[in-house]
Amino acid sequence: MTINDGLLVMTKTVLEVDNLSVEFPARRGLVKAVRNVSFQLYEGEALALIGESGSGKTTLGLSLVRLLPKTARIREGRILYRKDGEEQDVLLLSREGLRAFRWRECAMVFQGAQNAFNPVLRIEDQFIDTARAHGIRDKDKVRAEARELLRRVHLDPDRVLKSFPHELSGGMRQRVLIALGLLLKPQIVILDEPTTALDILTQRSVIEVLRSVRDEFKFSLIFISHDLSLAAELADRVATVYAGKIVEIGNVFDIFEKPRHPYTQGLTQTVPTVTGELRELISIPGSPPDLIEPPKGCAFNPRCPYASERCRQEQPPLEEVGDGQFAACWNWREITERKPL
């Protein structure tokens, strides 16, 4: 579903994650970074994965394009990619298939725009290299395409194409990466912390650029962030990730205005807004969970004011709590208004 002026429109699913679990070995034991996650990405929508550090959101993003570190193990699950009526499981793709999938169908733009570039190549050559890696050898065509895309992200192609990555500012690099991600016209773009570490005004320009390229190219967008305000700004739907699980997913207005999971509710109450009078902020007690030995039952129960005996014993499933809104909480009915945690 996407939201057009508050109207819900049913659309096609382009990506379906089904019961995905990812683990890492660590000194103390297995890090259960992603635990039985399922969700769908609809055509043309922007989905925000929101969570704090160590919630597993980045691992989840990386597993979608199978860019996990070597030590990681996908224990179970399927990632189904759909296009033109065909369906394939990303986890079963061959090396070649994966390579084609990664940029042509699904591009990932990483956190820390600096490291994503080869430092000794000019921006122009980064575009040409990327295209060549996917079988496009017509340099002039790539160059023309690159110029067009750079203009779309509000950069001056004449200047940028001839520059080395280190000659550009952080915000410019981030925009170049977005342009590079769009080079092969993928159906899905994944952004990992697209505005983190950028200054406010730069962040604003990246947000505006994302908004305008999305309007133009109509791709589906997944962005991973710890920043709630970015989700409020850009997302159609929001998924809250806690201890490797999606604990709530729904359209952006529902998530911010009537959250049904205590963690989502807590998050929306902790972030100060700059406009208007001082509103009361309430913090979430306790510390982030341990992913090696997550708490029994619902992982949020040690920090949750609504926790009952059942929460300490049984893991709640994602349950439909509203129109297209799902929450994994036994007591979601009690969570109706903004209430101090």
């Binding site: 406010i200 005004l201 920043d227 409020a232 911010f256 807004t273 406009t275």
Partner: peptide, 15 residues
């Protein structure tokens, strides 16, 4: 400019 550029954690407000 700074104040106007800051995204807010409230979808109606920020949009």
């Amino acid at each position: 400019a700074l104040l106007s550029a800051i995204p807010e954690a409230d979808p109606r407000l920020t949009r």
